[in-house]
Design a protein around this nucleic acid. Sequence first.
DNA 1: GATGAATGAGGCTTCATTCAT
DNA 2: CATGAATGAAGCCTCATTCAT
Lengths: 230, 230, 230, 230
Amino acid sequence: MTKGCPNSLDHRTRIGQTRREKTRERLCEAAIMVFAERGLNGTVIDHVVRQAGVSRGTFYNYFDTIEDVLDAARVVLKRELVLLVKDSVDFDRPPAERVAFGLRAFIEVARQNKLFLEFSARLGHQSYSFSNLLKETAPGFVSSAIEAGEFRPIPEGLIFDLMESGAISVLRRLMNGEAVDVAAFVAAMLRVLGLSYEASVAIAALPVEAPQPAEDSLLLRANATWSASQ
Amino acid sequence: MTKGCPNSLDHRTRIGQTRREKTRERLCEAAIMVFAERGLNGTVIDHVVRQAGVSRGTFYNYFDTIEDVLDAARVVLKRELVLLVKDSVDFDRPPAERVAFGLRAFIEVARQNKLFLEFSARLGHQSYSFSNLLKETAPGFVSSAIEAGEFRPIPEGLIFDLMESGAISVLRRLMNGEAVDVAAFVAAMLRVLGLSYEASVAIAALPVEAPQPAEDSLLLRANATWSASQ
Amino acid sequence: MTKGCPNSLDHRTRIGQTRREKTRERLCEAAIMVFAERGLNGTVIDHVVRQAGVSRGTFYNYFDTIEDVLDAARVVLKRELVLLVKDSVDFDRPPAERVAFGLRAFIEVARQNKLFLEFSARLGHQSYSFSNLLKETAPGFVSSAIEAGEFRPIPEGLIFDLMESGAISVLRRLMNGEAVDVAAFVAAMLRVLGLSYEASVAIAALPVEAPQPAEDSLLLRANATWSASQ
Amino acid sequence: MTKGCPNSLDHRTRIGQTRREKTRERLCEAAIMVFAERGLNGTVIDHVVRQAGVSRGTFYNYFDTIEDVLDAARVVLKRELVLLVKDSVDFDRPPAERVAFGLRAFIEVARQNKLFLEFSARLGHQSYSFSNLLKETAPGFVSSAIEAGEFRPIPEGLIFDLMESGAISVLRRLMNGEAVDVAAFVAAMLRVLGLSYEASVAIAALPVEAPQPAEDSLLLRANATWSASQ
DNA sequence: GATGAATGAGGCTTCATTCAT
DNA sequence: CATGAATGAAGCCTCATTCAT
């Protein structure tokens, strides 16, 4: 196929790898957009390749199933989210504030980025949610806080489940254009962790600055492309 | 038309309606079983008719889409659930206890009835969940309790969302055979409603008697059939 | 089924035959209406039985296929048409006038009876057309006129074909709400029969009185029912 | 993307387009054959794909409905017909002769090509008929001739309707193996246009040379294939 | 005779997957 | 590697027909 093209093997390989990486990225981005619009079950391979502007056969050079590309999309989103949310959380603050700030930052990202909102709301726990983020970026955080007496005892799995499923409910409401009392949700999660009603409400009400995505953020770029095509 | 022979038409009509009702019920039961195994998106009409032992065409005499039969199944389950859970809840007890008992009864039903467990866990909020039950059998219950000062202020939609999505998480864990601390979940919900940590734990730990399904319960019968075929 | 109804055999039989005849008629009428709306290929047995208000099974007591009921409908229409058009044609007039009056009366019936119009236009040569009428009510009319020198020689089959297919074209235009120069069509047919241009135009322009359907005309009654349901 | 290997993409594209065009043609040809045998309403997609020897899915890569492939078939037939009939008509002859020659050539093509005959007869006005041909290849021809006094006044739509429906009647007779007096039909059409009986008969009787299909005519090829399979 | 529930063959459409170029 | 034509399995839906009551 590249016969007759007089490049060195090295060069071809390098070029190839770059190109390969780029095509893969294009497919991921395209998939995020399509999943955001149609959810997992409404999406077929054709939607993705058309959005990506590649041929059907190319898809199979990178992924085997539509679920595979969802996995890849999750990884991409994780990378972006970690960058965004980490900045919003001051690691010197008490655990309750860190949870509150993290949750609110996560929801704020979704509020400001329609693409991410629809993706997360539509895919639910198949998306990359806040509890995933927490588990991976601050492992052991909750149990340490419990041991330290900052939170009251609760099975770690349960609190993750409740934060994840609760956050998804919130996002789904936001997606549908309903008014959502985010502070009330955050306060509820803090009470689950053992804070008093008053403390939960107070901390949930603390001002939080919105996360600023980097200029070259894939999420930002994809959101722009996608919003334009809506 | 059959004037002069006044009974034959009635008789024929009665027979027809009985048969019709029976087939519809069969389809509903079959649908519950199939949904329990494969969820909504994994289920196709063929699965249902094969499980019900009727022809494909018969399905269309009763329903138009697979979603329609899911709606019908939900109605059936609601009927059964109301009967089961109502018995477990003493209406004279304080609101917190009623919530705690209701939640635990709901989860207990699922624990004892594998079919219902898988149906609910697999369908998530497309199933007939605890918050549906609460909303329909005791409308206004939560807001009254908030007004009465038994619970602390929280948007009603939020508490329903959290109970529903939380309960589904619990059921999903149970379905996967994981150990679940149901009392901890119930206590968490009570804290969301504003109870103190100690009160939440105490009430969640009160003994609750398991709901006893009636002998002719569709759920019981279907569960038996289904478990046998597993 | 009629056991216990103490009628004499004769009476039952007579009643039965009357009822039988009435049901058959109902099916025919219903079929005409449905064919008028959907044509032959768009019509299924269910449409007919629903329009007739009888059960699906009853259909099979009278007809085997949808084409059979069309045949029956044709017979009904023929009966009605013969009554209507015959009155409009004075048998003492010269052949050219008789043809002209007959054609115009036929088209006029369709113009005044939307049901018949749509039926004829939609079914085309599967309907009961003017040439059928001519062949059956005045056999040999054209060839006699040719022999008598009133018309010029032309194969009889050809003139029937042209009148039939031409009339259907006209009806189709009428059905679509287009303006149609009926006199021009009639004149064209007269020229086909050998009349000069001037004679053809003159005769086609003679005033013709619209056929008056009998009060108890099935076509009238069915048209009313049908128009009401449009 | 393939910038350094400028020929490979072009080559692939060319190959692809060739293949694509060939398959499309196969489907069209197959459709013509099937329509010729079964008419529009008797034909289903499966018949076409089986005749074409392609898979069911392939059909949908080219057409959406059976009507779409009929449209395509019509275009193919038009192309062929224009070539064939144009040759038979001397544009310097008087309008009446041009009409007469055109009609006779059209019918002659059908007489010599069983496939085209059955296609046209079976599809009627859904086929590509003589009046279509006339309208598209010589627009305004009739009205000019009327203005020039060569034909007598008649609504243009009417003359097209009569030529189309009349020609179809003729073809239907031919298809059924009946003897047809084509000259009489042509003469009748000329009289419709205002010619005298004698002139109409004389012009209709002029000798006309049979149209000669090109060697690579799709119609010829398809007719051979089809006749062999009858 | 009338009824309408049940049937299943037949046609439609989508879409994951393969493969020659 | 990329392409996109071809494939056919799998679902969907309609409707003529049968049959017990």
